[in-house]
Design a binder for these strands. Structure first.
Length: 123
DNA sequence: ACAATGACGCCTC
DNA sequence: AGAGGCGCCATTG
């Protein structure tokens, strides 16, 4: 390492933290951009999560589709190919949509300590 | 270096 | 509930 290597938090390292957090989302669950930022140890960086997913070249093998916005919706324009693609992937692994929304009580990760997740019976 | 742009989120109407 | 305004932070032009 050269003398000019004193930076500890490069954009690159942040991206890695974010990607690692995304990889933790279990199959059949979803997480919001803000939640992922928090898990990555980067609070207030929700926007950055979106930027990383958008700009990162190799998203292959990464469960990017499990990241949605805090309102429980897919963050692509309704009707776009990207929207359809993400929705398909989610439904394929058992995530239910009510209209265009996902019930966060049931599918969000990490799970809250709330008991609501255990009594989702039938909406 | 500066301004615009986004796969965001929260608060206020 | 839905829309608009503003703060946030890295990327782009």
């Amino acid at each position: 390492m050269g003398p000019a290597t004193k930076k500890t938090s490069t954009p690159e390292s942040k991206a890695n933290l974010i990607l690692a957090a995304v990889r933790q989302i279990p199959r059949g669950k979803v997480s919001s951009y803000g939640q992922i930022a928090a898990v990555a140890g980067l609070p207030r960086c929700a926007r950055l999560v979106g930027t990383v997913l958008r700009t990162h070249p190799n998203t292959r093998g990464l469960p990017w589709h499990r990241v949605i916005n805090s309102s429980g919706r897919i963050s692509f324009p309704l009707g776009s190919d990207a929207y359809a693609r993400q929705r398909k992937l989610l439904e394929r692994e058992g995530v239910d949509f009510i209209g265009q929304r996902i019930n966060m009580k049931r599918f969000s990760w990490p799970p809250g300590n709330d008991l609501d997740e255990h009594l989702w019976f039938m909406p």
